[in-house]
Design a protein around this nucleic acid. Structure first.
Length: 108
DNA sequence: TAAGTGACGGCCC
DNA sequence: AGGGCCGCCACTT
């Protein structure tokens, strides 16, 4: 008892669940980043990637999560760009314009 | 126990 | 704009 609260308090499953929940909150046609989701959930970006790599279910729009620079993860790049295009997400070359469709909108 | 790996991010050149 | 380097963190070997 008496141990200070920390990230380790949540089980791995709880963290995964929190990540999935945050990703499901991304509106259609908008996108987010591993770092942004991580900040919402309270974990690092690599932990977010780890959670998404495990699947999470068909209800989780994993393809709406990109790298900080708007580029998709290499491992799923083709499929991701395909799905994003299907939602009408505007692409600048091979990267998404986070300033335009990024979520949450962090501009003041 | 140590070393390697990966759906990352930020800084520097 | 593009590419390299290092730091992070949890998991695997």
């Amino acid at each position: 008892m008496g141990r200070s609260p920390g990230p380790g308090d949540r089980t791995a499953e709880d963290v995964d669940e929190a990540v999935f929940d945050a990703v499901e909150a991304i509106p259609p046609g908008r996108v987010s980043t591993y770092g942004a989701i991580g900040r919402l959930v309270g974990v690092g970006p690599r932990r977010v990637a780890r959670a998404l790599s495990g699947g999470g279910g068909a209800a989780v729009p994993w393809y709406r999560v990109l790298r900080a620079d708007g580029t998709p993860a290499e491992a799923v790049r083709v499929r991701q760009l395909e799905l994003l295009a299907g939602e009408g997400v505007p692409l600048r070359g091979s990267r998404v314009d986070l300033a335009a469709v990024g979520w949450p909108d962090e501009r003041g």
